[in-house]
């Protein structure tokens, strides 16, 4: 209880915790679909691809306003998604190879641009590299409000399209036969993913964003066999990681929030993989032992 009171009293902690929690909820929900669609790495490619977008947006406008930079990030991520689609469709490359190439090309270009900006020594250049690993401590109330609006939109769209997303994730062929275009739904989903990435760039950055999408979803899958509950648990794991990471980073000062959020999430993921009732490794082991014992007795 004191944790929550503290959260509300400390301005910095409140923004950092709220921002991270929002990111955790949104990426937790979207991550479920990404993981179930076997597109875990799509988020990774798109978030890395956002880096050159941030740089180009800065070079064009000279502004460091998060909204401007995030818009650039979203455009670049979208461009990467389009390139990815074309590469998979028009070349002999498989999706994994295409993902790897798009990710490294865009990211490499982004790093070159970052260096260029740093060398050219514009007054505001110092701030850009914080998008690599995020710097949640710099979140202000306005940033959190922006994140809340964007995240709210994503969650509303997922709620509206829940039936369609579930269908196209489970059986895309059947969805197509019913007239639910998999292409259109895929584009919708990619757009939602891009928005989630934009939300996450300030907090965990382009490099660690993929973990925010994959971790909570995989953890949640261990606890339930029901998609709706999986979304809820995943959102909870994401939010808990965000708040936990924020709290550790603010109290033990000088530790970066983004990586701490990821570490807390990894802890929750490990607990889930080991101890979740139906799927956890420990219980499986126990069941196997018992099963073995039963067989011995039967023999």
């Amino acid at each position: 209880m004191s944790v929550f009171i503290e959260l509300w009293r400390d301005y910095t902690l409140r923004n950092v915790a709220l921002g991270s929690a929002l990111l955790g909820i949104v990426s937790g929900v979207l991550g479920c679909f990404a993981v179930l669609r076997r597109q875990s790495l799509l988020g990774d490619a798109l978030s890395h691809a956002a880096l050159p977008g941030i740089c180009v947006a800065y070079l064009l406008t000279g502004s460091r306003a998060p909204l401007v930079l995030l818009a650039g990030a979203a455009v670049a991520a979208w461009l990467a998604a389009t390139v990815l689609l074309r590469v998979v469709r028009d070349t002999v490359l498989g999706e994994d190879a295409a993902l790897g190439i798009v990710l490294s090309t865009f990211f490499g270009f982004g790093v070159v641009l970052l260096t260029f900006i740093a060398r050219s020594g514009g007054a505001g250049q110092a701030g850009l590299d914080r998008y690599l690993f995020g710097q949640a401590a710099t979140l202000v109330a306005d940033d959190v409000a922006t994140m809340a609006v964007l995240g709210g939109i994503v969650l509303v769209v997922v709620a509206l399209l829940y039936k369609e997303l579930k269908l196209v994730t489970f059986d895309p062929g059947f969805a197509e036969s019913l007239g639910f275009s998999t292409t259109r739904l895929g584009l919708f989903f990619t757009t939602l993913l891009v928005v989630a990435i934009a939300i996450g760039l300030q907090t965990v950055g382009v490099v660690l964003m993929a973990a925010m999408l994959i971790g909570p979803a995989v953890a949640a899958r261990q606890w339930t066999d029901h998609l709706g509950r999986m979304l809820a648990i995943s959102a909870f794991v994401g939010a808990a990681s965000g708040i936990g990471g924020a709290r550790i980073s603010v109290t033990r000062s000088h530790l970066p929030t983004g990586p701490l959020v990821i570490l807390v999430m990894t802890g929750l993921l490990a607990i889930s993989l080991l101890f979740a009732p139906a799927h956890g490794a420990v219980w499986r082991l126990v069941r196997r032992r018992r099963g073995h014992g039963a067989r011995v007795v039967a023999a």
Partner: peptide
């Protein structure tokens, strides 16, 4: 053609026929 590890029930899959 589908992944039967998908987190859902038999009834839910059948319900998809009404979508």
């Amino acid at each position: 053609s589908v992944d039967w590890d998908f987190p859902t029930t038999a009834l839910d899959v059948v319900t998809m026929g009404t979508y």
